[in-house]
Simulated assay, not measured.
Amino acid sequence: MIIIGKKSLYLEQLRPFRMAFVRHTGPYGPSNMQTMEKLKQWAKQKELLKEDAILYGIPQDDPRVTMPEHCRYDACIVISDDFHFEQEPGLDINLGKSPGGNYLTITIPHTTEGIQRAWNEMISQLHLYGYSMNNTKPVIERYRLSLLNQHLCEFFIPVTTY
């Protein structure tokens, strides 16, 4: 465990998981929330949005190097290996699998400011603790109902050690 300010970072081995997702291409911002809502509506219809559901928000591109109109954001829900998926006309629901890997994980306020602060403070200090960001994988946000009820989410920073 690493303490930065009053926050604790934990190293977590994220196992690969099967997911259904909706992708938005364009500037990050309010459209990310709309993309997540679209996924949640579909998941609710499929009876996937239960107490133990795990959702991820995955910005695929760094807006400092990718033009805003080309930035990709995936809103994802973990699905079981036996979930039968059929593409439905008119719905942009996709199927995929996460690569998994080592992540430093921190619980943060589920706000734009909380996420921005995590980017600014946590990532810039990784090297102090013997880690560097693994730029082959995206930073991700994990949402679980138990945390959302407290207005929190988890921020995952992909890392490698020196």
Rank of each mutant, 00 (worst) to 15 (best):
I77Y: 03
N102M: 13
G96Y: 09
G96L: 13
G100Y: 05
D92H: 13
G96H: 11
S98N: 10
I54Y: 06
Y73I: 07
Y103C: 14
K97Q: 15
G101M: 12
I79D: 01
H70T: 05
S98Y: 10
T66P: 10
F85G: 08
L91T: 12
G101H: 14
Y73C: 00
V78I: 10
G101L: 11
D61F: 00
F83A: 03
D92Q: 12
E88N: 09
L55T: 01
Q87I: 15
G90D: 13
D81A: 10
R64E: 08
I93T: 03
P68G: 00
Y73K: 04
L95E: 15
S80N: 11
E86V: 12
S80W: 09
D81R: 07
Q60F: 04
D62N: 10
I93F: 06
F83W: 14
R72M: 08
I58F: 03
R64H: 05
D74S: 04
I93K: 06
I77R: 04
I77T: 06
E88C: 10
D82F: 04
P63I: 05
D61A: 01
Y103D: 10
R72I: 02
I79M: 08
L104K: 09
P63Y: 01
Y73W: 06
D81G: 14
S98W: 08
P99A: 09
